[in-house]
């Protein structure tokens, strides 16, 4: 966590944190869309932080740019694609489902399936053989224990 803090806080010299008042759009519906999209875009110079949360300069520039695109009439998909065209899929916090990410998206399901089947098989198991009969020594000890009163 220390390192996360360092990354989050130290990349920008100023204290410009996340969305600044001056950046916001007058139209609340448009602004809400902008917030939504910027939450899904990675701040490129940070760890797993979105540009909406980041205080980095580049994140601020992209926030402003994004709002300009929306004002110019871009759809959410087009505005996001605008950045993907420039920075690649890396800019998306949610990786797209494609050949290379099949294992990522279906890995957890696969683990659950395999684990579930394994647990199912385990629970269906039957005793292979009855427990071995007690040895003479064990029988003697049982008899002795039964004789003793509870300590």
């Amino acid at each position: 966590m220390i390192r996360v803090l360092l990354v989050l806080l130290l990349l920008a010299p100023g204290l410009a944190r996340a969305v600044e008042p001056g950046e916001r759009l007058a139209d609340p519906a448009l602004e809400a869309r902008a917030r939504d999209i910027s939450r899904s875009l990675r701040c490129l110079v940070c760890q797993n932080e979105s540009i909406d949360e980041s205080n980095a300069d580049l994140a601020r520039d992209i926030r402003v740019l994004l709002r300009e695109r929306l004002v110019a009439g871009d759809t959410d998909v087009a505005a996001r694609q605008f950045l993907v065209d420039r920075y690649g899929d890396f800019v998306l916090l949610k990786p797209p489902l494609e050949g290379a990410t099949l294992l990522l998206w279906f890995g957890p399901v696969l683990v659950l399936l395999v684990g579930g089947v394994a647990v199912g098989l385990y629970l269906r198991r039957r005793p292979v053989a009855p427990p071995p009969p007690l040895t003479a020594a064990e029988r003697a000890r049982v008899a002795q224990l039964l004789k003793e009163p509870e300590a």
Partner: peptide, 13 residues
């Protein structure tokens, strides 16, 4: 000045 050309090129530093 605005950094826009930078973003167009995909500059992140």
């Amino acid at each position: 000045l605005s950094g826009r050309t930078g973003i167009d090129f995909g500059v992140y530093g």
